[in-house]
Structures are given as C-alpha cells and as structure tokens.
Amino acid sequence: MRLRLLFRRGEAVKYLSHLDLMRLFVRACRRAGLPLAYSGGFSPSPAISFALPLAVGVVGEQELVDLGFSEDLAPEALLAALRPQLPPGVEALDAWPAGGKALTRTITAADYTARFETDRSRADLEAAIADLLARDSLILERTRGDKTRTFDLRPLIVSLELTDWQEGEAEVTMRLVAENNRAGRPDDVLAALGMDDAPAVYARRALHFSEPIR
C-alpha cells in the first residue's frame, strides 16, 4: 500500500541533494520501524517516490512523497512514528492514502520565490520582467558533466512578477512548468533577468497537478 506524505524542507536542510533527501526518508522509516516495501530483484530498493526533485539550496514548503509499505499502515500512525525520527528542518505536515496515478505523472507546475540582493531599482526590475515575458523564446545552454544541451526557457515560465522590493533586496515569485522531462529552474529565470551572480535564496511554495492529489 502507498501513503502520500506532505512535508516541509526548511532552511536547516535546504542544502541536501535529492538523493540525500531520499536516503533521509528511508533511514527515518527504518528507525521508526515502519515496514517500507522493497522492489524485488538482486539489489532491492525501497519504494519511495518524490513528486519532483528539489534542487540543492531550495527550501520546500509543500513537498510530496509517496511511500510504499508492505503492510497496512494508517496515515496517522505514519505521522506519529515518523515525526520523532526526522532531523531538524524536515517536518511531516500531513499524510493520506495515495490513490490514482503516480505524482511524477500528474505534476504540471511549481511555484517559486527567489529573494536576492540587488542595487537595481524597482522600475528597472519590473521592466526586465516585462521584457522577458514579452519574448517568444529564450534559448539557453545547460552543461551537465561534459554534455551541453540547449533549451528554451521562455515556455517554461507560466508567470513571473516582482513581489517585494526594498533598498538592496528584491523578491520575485514565479510559476514554472514542472513536467516529467521538462522543468523550469528558478535560478535560470533569475539569470535571464540579469541577476546571474546575485546572492539569492530560493523557496518552492507549492506544486500543481493535473489530477487531485487527495
């Protein structure tokens, strides 16, 4: 059986990688004595599946993971057993039985905020955003290892706006496409606004799906 867990990844653990977070949940379940299901085969792996990987350095406010168990387990029991086993910064918010398709197949978009240091004016930033949104396409390159591929950032931006501005610091909020094999990254959007090197902090506020997740 599968349970769906809603959790928060806070500041204290935001520098973990996707794999680190996966390991963290597996070990927490094992400490809690929860009957995690394992795939068959020569090297069994635990049945655990996140809706969308969270990049290193990004806080996740409303993250979702499906956990497979080999025995029946009530959502309340999962929460009660898991909470004492989570390291500071990871909060189990809610849990319910997972029905329907896998989260990775129904996810469509994610909302992010990026807060960054800048000496640019409010008007200047708003103009940059308007320019970016007015474009039809913006081809960027991404290098991973020794492979470089090009992709179009513009269609990945669903919405983008300046949500806070103070002397020296600003915040943008955006909704980015997050599908199985194409997902926008908030740091790419910041770079497209000309803020490549600005110190910035990121948070993912919400995930959006094509079908109800409960």
Partner: peptide, 24 residues
Amino acid sequence: MLQPLDRILPRVQKPARYTGGEFN
C-alpha cells in the same frame, strides 16, 4: 535577509558538508 552562509554555500560542491544538523 540573506545569511552569511547563503552567500557562499550555493557556490561550492556538496554544501551539505558544511551545514551539520544530522540526526543524532
């Protein structure tokens, strides 16, 4: 407000080497 570490950790490999907070 950005914390001092937020200025440097995004620029290094494996920043979780420098943040602590592990279970136990």
